[in-house]
Design a protein around this nucleic acid. Sequence first.
DNA 1: CTTTGTCTTGCGGGAACCCGCAGATTTTGC
DNA 2: GCAAAATCTGCGGGTTCCCGCAAGACAAAG
Lengths: 238, 238
Amino acid sequence: MRVLIVEDDPLHRSYLHEAVRAALPECDMVVEAENGQSGEIEARKSRMEHVVMDLQMSERNGIEAARTIWRERPDTKILFWSNYSDEAYVRGVSRIVPEGATYGYVLKSASDERLKLALRSVFVESQCVIDREVRGIQQKSLGNAHGLTDAEYEILVDVALGLTDKAIAQRKRLSLRSVQNRLQQLYEKLDVYDLPDDGMEGWYNLRMRAVAVALLRKVLNSSALERAERELRDSGSR
Amino acid sequence: MRVLIVEDDPLHRSYLHEAVRAALPECDMVVEAENGQSGEIEARKSRMEHVVMDLQMSERNGIEAARTIWRERPDTKILFWSNYSDEAYVRGVSRIVPEGATYGYVLKSASDERLKLALRSVFVESQCVIDREVRGIQQKSLGNAHGLTDAEYEILVDVALGLTDKAIAQRKRLSLRSVQNRLQQLYEKLDVYDLPDDGMEGWYNLRMRAVAVALLRKVLNSSALERAERELRDSGSR
DNA sequence: CTTTGTCTTGCGGGAACCCGCAGATTTTGC
DNA sequence: GCAAAATCTGCGGGTTCCCGCAAGACAAAG
């Protein structure tokens, strides 16, 4: 068995290396990459079928790297190992995992034991392992208690990029009014109408406030914004 | 000499511990804290005069912890050790460092050698050590080439929180028009008028776009937003 | 004292946003 | 196959935003 480690922090990288060695004695080769860019290249070159991947790296983050790896070989087993369980990351991962692929999501705050268990479960048993906490976020994100629909999320991203209603309507092939409808749903779900103190109406610019709340709740994060910005520029110049 | 380490990542914490031991043989006591909250308490309890502090921790981040520590003992020497050199962090740090205090700012990507040198310089020689890259950000942030004035930055934060022009005017004791003036300066400095492709006017909601650009350029980050949000709620309920 | 520059404030208008209402269209459940 | 529910769409209005124009306030330089 051969394992590829993609992680930009040297300390964490060597810790991971150690953990892989300990948890997977049948592993006879460990390759390290220090960002998503070189991670993709390494995976392609060596046809790696087992990857441990950090999210949030410079150059190219884990989600993008994982997407291209899976696009080339959908049976690759990937264990995500991340600091945070931001809804934006969780949503980003579930968005790209192909049909029937096996993957895992473990937080860096998890114990040694949990990490090693996850390594064995995912790589040897081909079993999906999602950290308890991450699972919670996933649930909330899907069950529309306070979670956003995909449609709503897309609108949120477009708004956050600074696009006009009209521009969004054009991009999404919708009428102006439909975009505004979606926006209103968004405002409700994000509790934008909650005022800090009553007696102050008109204190919030709803559009901006919605994005602020999304950022504070980690529904959006800057990494997701960067990704969206790049897509926007690409599609714009096409 | 006694040193307090405030860092939430266990790996980095023990690495730091090691580095302190190696660089400062005269140090006879090292205390560790795993977030800003307990860092403050520990500093107060043990009257620590030397602190190594991570920025970006949960609970209470490094900037807030440093502020309260410095408020109680302005002669405390603090070495910030951070992953990023976001303008938001750099600005946040320079905003709270008291008159004549000695501090340092080193990136985690720096070499072993650089870290140890910084430890000695700051703690023993009482000399300020600012990482080259961070220094660059500082310059750019002050020299108004593309840097924002404090006034502009404050407006930016208020806008990013989702406040209306009127609300900002009231908070800042300005007229409506003055707020809008500052906003326009902001729009120019953030190049909001740059269109991805020409022939599309009215594609951007300037207010939102300005915040998006600020986030993408790391002039703002979510940690700064969280801080501002807390201040807003506090001042609102007062 | 005058001049020049920066900062503030008011006015006014065009554009974008927010949203209730109501009809048309699509999706869903049975 | 049909009714209920959810979505999409156009209209109209009230509000906020964006910004050019211009008049006052204040400080620094000539």
